[in-house]
Design a binder for these strands. Sequence first.
DNA 1: CTTATATATTGACACTGTCAAGTTTATGAT
DNA 2: ATCATAAACTTGACAGTGTCAATATATAAG
Lengths: 196, 196
Amino acid sequence: MLDKLNTHHHGNLHEALIVAGIELLNEGGMHALTLRKCAARAGVSHAAPAHHFDGLNGLLAAIVARGFQQFTEAMVGEREKAAKDPFSILCAICRGYLKFAITNEALFNLMFSPQMQDLEDNNSQRELPDAYQVLRDACAPFKHGSNGAAGTELMVWSLVHGFAQLTRKNRVHPDKHTTDDTNFDNILRDLKLELV
Amino acid sequence: MLDKLNTHHHGNLHEALIVAGIELLNEGGMHALTLRKCAARAGVSHAAPAHHFDGLNGLLAAIVARGFQQFTEAMVGEREKAAKDPFSILCAICRGYLKFAITNEALFNLMFSPQMQDLEDNNSQRELPDAYQVLRDACAPFKHGSNGAAGTELMVWSLVHGFAQLTRKNRVHPDKHTTDDTNFDNILRDLKLELV
DNA sequence: CTTATATATTGACACTGTCAAGTTTATGAT
DNA sequence: ATCATAAACTTGACAGTGTCAATATATAAG
């Protein structure tokens, strides 16, 4: 039992399949993510994943859950490195947000794709609140607009999310491709958020 | 040649395939959009589409192009019905934006999916500018922030786009599901845009 | 040691997109 | 008018895909 080579059991196939899936996602996009390729990369037959996930959708849901963990870590990681005033923290959160969206493009898109949102509603997995709470905390110190705290959160959340979607390939500004994530600080500044 | 029944030629297969594709998209989501099903719905064999589009990607590109046309029409349609002051016009544009995103969920997601953006870059089709110009015009009357006119446009564009993505299934506010498109007017108000 | 259960394999099925080759229809030149 | 050519569509095949049923193997329990 010391070496598991040539054994029938994999040991930790559940985890291996998730990792393989995220790898495939990063390498070749959503199109390259396949149940059979995940199995092959984990060194296992094509039908093995069925014993660990409820089909492809189950694996996708697990990958998305893992993605939200890393997503939260990306935001918190930037927050740790930033200055401790509210506006710097908010900028750092958004920087982590955009950094993750750019670094893990396909995964990010999968996480927020409509089919995944449907799956989550059915399974009520609710990984999002962790990531959302990070952003909520960053919005808390600011004065709220006409829609209360939820309005401020929704505004910042929509803004950074839309920015992430739109600036992937200079979609918005074909002429001048200066839409780096550094520019987002200026957009946040234009919101003229006031401390409470 | 008066009736084309039982004839070898379809007559307008190109258009029929696009229409069939959008129908399938609305009925069953991205998962239901299939080259073979489009062909079947158009009453034609499974390999016929290859003579009108460059494979599935070609059909998708055509569907996306059609989608952007309808997208622009949705925004312009709301603008026509609105009052003529700049802020009402901007609200109307966003209302059309969100209306289209909600009504054509799968199509909207396809339009802004990364793979489509890649395809457009290769083909340089550039249907987006039409829709973007509508939003640009609506932003023009307002004073610009630290990033100039492009910054204002990007801010509004990101905001409404992110809002559309996030409020599809009450993703943002699991507790209170009051994120109608009417609330977006309040968010726009909180931007405190000033006339130039 | 025997039994039982979780784990993985094999094989099959209905799909998918794509390609090559053949068939029918329309068009155009002589 | 006749024939050649091109366009439109069909047929058949191929490699992949997800999923299911049946099978084999390894681990665990009694």
